[in-house]
Amino acid sequence: MAATTAPAARKLPIAKAINESLRAAMEADPKVLVMGEDVGKLGGVFRVTDGLQKDFGEERVIDTPLAESGIVGTAIGMALRGYRPVVEIQFDGFVFPAYDQIVTQLAKMHARALGKVKVPVVIRIPYAGGIGAVEHHSESPEALFAHVAGLKCVSPSNSADAYWMLRQAIECDDPVIFFEPKRRYWEKGEVDPAAIPGPLHQAKVAKEGTALTLAAYGPMVKVCLEAAAAAEEEGNSLEVVDLRSISPIDFDTVQRSVEKTRRLVTVHEAPVFLGSGAEVAARLTERCFYHLEAPVLRVGGFHAPYPPARLEDEYLPGLDRVLDAVDRALAY
């Protein structure tokens, strides 16, 4: 109902949807701040914060010194003062100087204070590969954060989710690591600012199917949808679950899907070993042991540094690698 009278349902690229989301959050709450390297005049290296400093001023859209630990550490201090900082880490591989502040301080502060303080800091990280970048610009470190109690980790795969999930992350009283699929920044999807979004950490069935479930998030959802379309031509009906959240993971939605399809393949860019797919596999094996017709298979990156750009097409799980795992699972 509200959706049909929405003032401005528009097709937006993911980057612009995030920009609009930040803008709406800043308009709604004067305590929301944006901070990071080059987020001001430049609008960020991906232009995600384009125009925000012009409209909200240097007091709220803060160009920071080039020191990630300092960015997150001061954001924690501002959150303790009552602000809601949205921090941009310029690239995935640059987050590690801030890892100590995130893991040791940000994640634990609410518990250490026995619930007396809240640290609602959002850390946006453009992550994963596929843009032909140099070293340290293509990594998928989400498991390193999801493993830490006190943090929440999400990753949208499309424009509508990018808009709404960021709004929800900013409104959340917990620290949220917001992983943005940088190679999808320019892909368009409809965003309806008047829609009523579902819960932040709820997975969604992106495509229904019957023979096997593909569970993915962020940049790999599109690959899985393409794989499902290709499989359809071969007569195999695949269901695609967009996890959306990596901490917590909505195992219930995956379980419902697997109880129907009886087969599960997890897909992410991050290395397979100890990745989020391993957690999904373990949990779903436990929950659906008697439903499964095949072991849960995992598709992902290798236990090797992210390769130079000219090898990334081979390194990244593509449609063929996903379908190879699908074939192996269906062969059981």
Binding site: A75, A79, R81
Partner: peptide, 22 residues
């Protein structure tokens, strides 16, 4: 709160002070 990992709180203090100024 007491901070055990040394130095971390100095950034928190600075951020808090930035908030005071705001």
């Amino acid at each position: 709160l007491y901070t055990i990992v040394i130095g971390s709180q100095v950034l928190h203090a600075t951020g808090y002070a930035m908030g005071v100024a705001k």
